[in-house]
Nucleic acid binder design. Sequence first.
DNA 1: TGAGCATATGTCAGACATGACATATCGTCA
DNA 2: TGACGATATGTCATGTCTGACATATGCTCA
Lengths: 106, 106
Amino acid sequence: MRATKRNKLEAAGWRVGDAADLLDLSPEETAFVALKLALADHLRKIRTQHRWTQSAVAKRLDSSQSRVAKMEAADPSVSIDLLVRALLTLGASRKDVGRVIASHAA
Amino acid sequence: MRATKRNKLEAAGWRVGDAADLLDLSPEETAFVALKLALADHLRKIRTQHRWTQSAVAKRLDSSQSRVAKMEAADPSVSIDLLVRALLTLGASRKDVGRVIASHAA
DNA sequence: TGAGCATATGTCAGACATGACATATCGTCA
DNA sequence: TGACGATATGTCATGTCTGACATATGCTCA
């Protein structure tokens, strides 16, 4: 996906379910964004279930609070690599990651 | 994973199933490498099933033959983002990607 | 053997991701 | 209301990824 399009997404304050409807995303781009959001949502889910703060998670990941916030927001500056590493570090299995990606969560 | 460790992996000519046994990988690192290899293997599978050359795939991906070769080899210079984008562009669905990641292929 | 195509490997400039910091916004409790 | 903890947003230097190129290796067929 080109940065210009990702920025358009950001500007629109998009959420899953309306991005593809409102913007000119190709099927691959739509799938890519959905996949990234699924990982981001799961990361937040794991964190909140454990009642951890973003700062606490940042410490575990050797990262910063601001980056954790961006991970959970599926910010364009966050790679899938980073999200996957984060999930694995927080205890998710490869199978968990696969399930999260394949699932059709909103 | 640190670059030094990834380079060690490369140097050893590793394959799934023996990396963690021979090298000092943490569980997360092992899962991460396995996940990446699963994607890389699937990419090659899709390509060969269609009887496409790496150059033909490169054209579809707006990339180069050498990078496609590196993708299929799960080279350290290849990100999961790139692999996922490639699979989606070649027609795989988000669900396919999730299944590939979750599956326990050798 | 050697020509020809496919794949692998090494390298690099430019593009992009990362952690960190500063600062803004939100929520809640006194 | 204001103070405080948590989360969000903007920016930047440094490091990593990317496509491209050159070149090497592998494979098949005549």
